[in-house]
Amino acid sequence: MIKITTIFAAALIGLGLAAPVTAQEAGHTEAAKQHWSFAGIFGTYDQNQLQRGFQVFREVCASCHSARLLAFRNLAEEGGPAFSEGQVKELAAQYEVSDVTVAGGKRKALPADHWPSPFATELDARDANGGAFPPDMSVLAKARSIEDGFPGWVFNYFTTYAEGGPDYIHALLNAYSEEVPAGVTNSDGTPFTLPEGKYFNAVFPSNSIGMPPPLSDGQIEYAAAADGTTVPLTVEQYSKDVSAFLMWVAEPHLDNTKSAGFKVLAFLLLFAALMYLVKQRLWRKVH
């Protein structure tokens, strides 16, 4: 009689033989996985990191990228950057939003308002950015990922790997180079030439990106955290912080969902054990 395990082993070997034979274009690098505080089932957001990431977003990204699903009030929510309500009110008041019900059609933003977009329409955004459209950042961290071949994705089910988005964004922000490296080819093998007005990025698909390198060392002045710790003012640090922040923007209730998940799992495990005993006791006499 064939054991099911044998079948699965055969299937796995079969899949393994067929495993990734991906054509790698020269000069293109895959995003590397990073350590994130919110990774894994026990992971939670690092509040200081989210506050720093918000600063990067606000001072750099937000000048071209929108985040239409992010409301000011979200910034005060638990499990996020958790600014105080006063801080958020003050922050919102620095922005103007459109409101047809007030004279002049503009008013100061309130915490309930959403983050104002830098451009009114996609056309305006393209006009201002050399034809490229800076994507909305609301769920960007979940709309990007890095691909895991077999058997990596099998393990992902057990490690609950969901950080492909921040991994990709972090890698992209660190993959610029001023000169096109020697020997770079397109996917069809022809020599790569950088189009006018584009920038070379080793992680971006096609390697030519419309976004100029947005970050440089020392560009953003971080305030020290409440406990006095400081972090290096480097592109590496900025990109990690902003990637973490974007993950929070995309998945604001992550901490909450996980803590609910623990309670549910604990209940289910206990309940399953009890139901097993019930079933065993009941069936003991049947044979």
Binding site: I41, V139, L140, K142, A143, R144, S145, N156, Y157, T160, Y161, A162, G164, G165, A250, T257, K258, A260, G261, V264, L265, L268, L269, A272
Partner: peptide
Amino acid sequence: IPFAWFAFFAPDILGHPDNY
């Protein structure tokens, strides 16, 4: 138990990033 595992800890792992 696996259902809750996916729903609470990896709700998007079975989906495709492009759908975001």
